[in-house]
Write a protein that binds this DNA or RNA. Structure first.
Lengths: 206, 206
DNA sequence: GTCTATATAGGGATAGAC
DNA sequence: GTCTATCCCTATATAGAC
C-alpha cells in the first residue's frame, strides 16, 4: 500500500533504487539488527557503494524512519477510527480492530519484526524527529487510548493481552507455525482472541 | 540465584563490583540498547574507567551473556519439568506453568525487557557461544516443545498466545498499567489466561 | 583491582570527479 | 545517479605501570 508499484497496464515496473534500498535494509535490520547493519552491508547487497546510498537518504536514520512510518501508516486508520469513539464504544470496537490487525500483521510481518526487534533504535530515531517537529507517533496515541481510566481494568488487560497474543503467535513465534497454512493459523488465532475478549458480559452503560 | 548476596546473619553485604557492573549494564541495555551502550557509559556510571571493566569481563559480549543466562535459569526448571512429560500432559501442565510465569515476569521484568529489546544482539552472542560448545539454549528447547505436531494446532496457538499475552501486558505494556497495583494486575491477567486456555474441552486421549 | 596510554578497526558522513 | 577517496570519530580491546 505504501508502494504503488503497479503501472496503469498492470505490468511490474522495476522498483526504484530507493525502494530496493528499503527492501534490503528491512531484511537486514530484521535479521542482524539496525546497529549491526552497516551502510556497507546494504550497499554490497545492492551491488553498489556506500556513497551511492547518500544520494537517496541523507542519513542512515532516515532509512529506519521511513520503514517505521510504513508500519505507522498501517495502524493509522484504525487508531483514528478508535479516537472518534468514546471509551465504552472503544471496548466494543476492539474485537473488530484485532480482527483486521491479524490480517495486517500477516501481510506485513517484517515491518512488525523490525519494530519489535529494534525497539530502542526506533525509539531513538523518533525522539530525534520529535525534537524538531512535535508530531505524535502512533505508539503514543495508542498508549493514551489504552491508558484511559474510564475503561475498566479488566477490559484494558484483555485489550492489551489480545494484542500480545496476536503479535506473539504471528511475529515472535516465527518458525513455530511455519508448517501451518497461514489461513488456518489466522482462523485459530481469531478463535483464541474471541475467547479472550468475549468472555465477559458487555460493558455496562453507566 | 546466581547471586548469593545474603550473608549468614542476613545482613546485606555491599554487592561485588562485578554485580554492580551487571546491574548498571542491565539498566542501560534496556533503556538504550546493547549496541548503543558503550563500555564507557557503564564505567562512567560505575565511577570508574573502561579498562577496569576488563578485569571483570573479558569481552562486552560476556556481560550480555551472563545477564541472558539469568533469564535462562528462570525458565529452566519449568522447561525441564515440561520435557519429562509427554505431549498430552504438556497441554495439561501449561496453565500451571503460565501461572508461575506471571510471577517470574513481574519479579524480573528488566531481564525480560533486555531479552526482547535486544533480540538480535542476544541471538548473535548465543551463536558465538554455540560455535564453541554445542549447548542448547532455553529458547531452542522451548520451541522444540511447542512445535510438536503431536499437540493439536488449536492448543499450540493457545499456548503461544497465552505467553504473548503475559509478556505483552507485563513487559511490553510498560507504563500502560503503571497506576495499577501489581497484584491486582496479575489477578486480572490470570483470569484472562484462564479464559484463553480453558475455553476448550480437555484434549482427547487418542 | 584499577589506572593511563595506545593499538586497531570500523562506522557514518562528505567532497568532488565522472 | 554513482563512483573513489578521504575525514573524523568512537568503539572494543590490549599493554603495562601502579
Amino acid at each position: 500500500m505504501p508502494q504503488a508499484s503497479t503501472t496503469a497496464d498492470g505490468a511490474q515496473p522495476e522498483p526504484s533504487t530507493r525502494e530496493r534500498i528499503l527492501d534490503i535494509a528491512l531484511a537486514l535490520f530484521v535479521e542482524q539488527g539496525y546497529e549491526k547493519t552497516s551502510l556497507r552491508d546494504i550497499a554490497t547487497r545492492l551491488g553498489t557503494t556506500k556513497a551511492a546510498l547518500y544520494y537517496h537518504f541523507e542519513r542512515k536514520q532516515d532509512i529506519l524512519l521511513e520503514l517505521h512510518l510504513r508500519l505507522h501508516a498501517l495502524g493509522r486508520e484504525a487508531l483514528e477510527e478508535l479516537e472518534r469513539l468514546d471509551d465504552g464504544q472503544r471496548v466494543d470496537a476492539w474485537p473488530g480492530l484485532i480482527d483486521r490487525l491479524i490480517d495486517q500483521v500477516i501481510a506485513n510481518r517484517d515491518l512488525v519484526l523490525l519494530h519489535q526487534r529494534n525497539h530502542n533504535a526506533v525509539e531513538q530515531v523518533l525522539d530525534d524527529e520529535r525534537n524538531q517537529a512535535e508530531n505524535e507517533d502512533a505508539g503514543q496515541l495508542f498508549r493514551r487510548i489504552l491508558q484511559s481510566p474510564a475503561i475498566p481494568l479488566d477490559q484494558r488487560v484483555r485489550m492489551m493481552g489480545s494484542l500480545g497474543a496476536v503479535v506473539g503467535v504471528l511475529a515472535t513465534g516465527e518458525g513455530l507455525f511455519g508448517d501451518v497454512p497461514i489461513d488456518e493459523l489466522a482462523e485459530q488465532l481469531r478463535a483464541v482472541v474471541r475467547d479472550m475478549l468475549g468472555a465477559t458480559e458487555p460493558a455496562p452503560s453507566n
